[in-house]
Amino acid sequence: MQKTTGNKMKLGIFVTLSISLFILGIYLIGQRQQLFSSTFQISGIFKDISGLQVGNNVRFSGINVGIIDNIKQITDTTVQVDMLIDENARKFMKKNAKAIIGSDGLMGNKLILIIPGAYGKAELADNDFIETTQPVSMDDILIKIKIASDNAANITENISAITQNIREGKGTIGKLFMDSTMGENVDQALINIKQGAGGFKQNMTAASHNFLLKGYFKNKEKNKKSEK
């Protein structure tokens, strides 16, 4: 009899614990979906929701504050997205806040990012419509990448043509690099410049000793000393 009672107790504890675990799990999942917390609803109109689904997160300042409650097509170019937002986040969400569709990482689910509005505006009310910004679609990004890669291909083609000309000694730079006569001429010009500079220095030394210019050079030295 005692054994039977013990077994019943064990069974009762086991069943109670398992059911408690189940209820806890359900509560935690429900809490994530804003089922057990006070919420308010806002909506946004988008042209393209890029695969957003009911149940996706709504994020404000990097914090999950709500979920997508409903998505409905209004016209052929507009889709209304209803969001359930945690009541605690209402005080930070102003009338001029903006909603944009983003994604959770590179491979993650789609979500709505709410960009905070300017300080001093009124809070969003229940069933308000929030301003939206059209997201940059993957197709747009791919088109831009295509244009950039086409430009890069043109640039490299031009660079290739220029280097080819240089190698063949065409143009001034090509001649400078590839033509030996030009190099010799440049060398000779440098020698001439050097010789000219030496001669000029001698002339200036001679001029400084000339009685006509001596006064000018002495005044210059005096000014230098007084400045020091």
Binding site: F22, G25, I26, L28, I29, G30, R32, Q33, G55
Partner: peptide, 18 residues
């Protein structure tokens, strides 16, 4: 760990399985 677990689980995962 459990925050990430319950973040991704939904009722459609739990109830049909049970």
């Amino acid at each position: 760990f459990f925050s990430q677990v319950f973040e991704k689980l939904s009722f459609t995962d739990v109830f049909p399985a049970i």
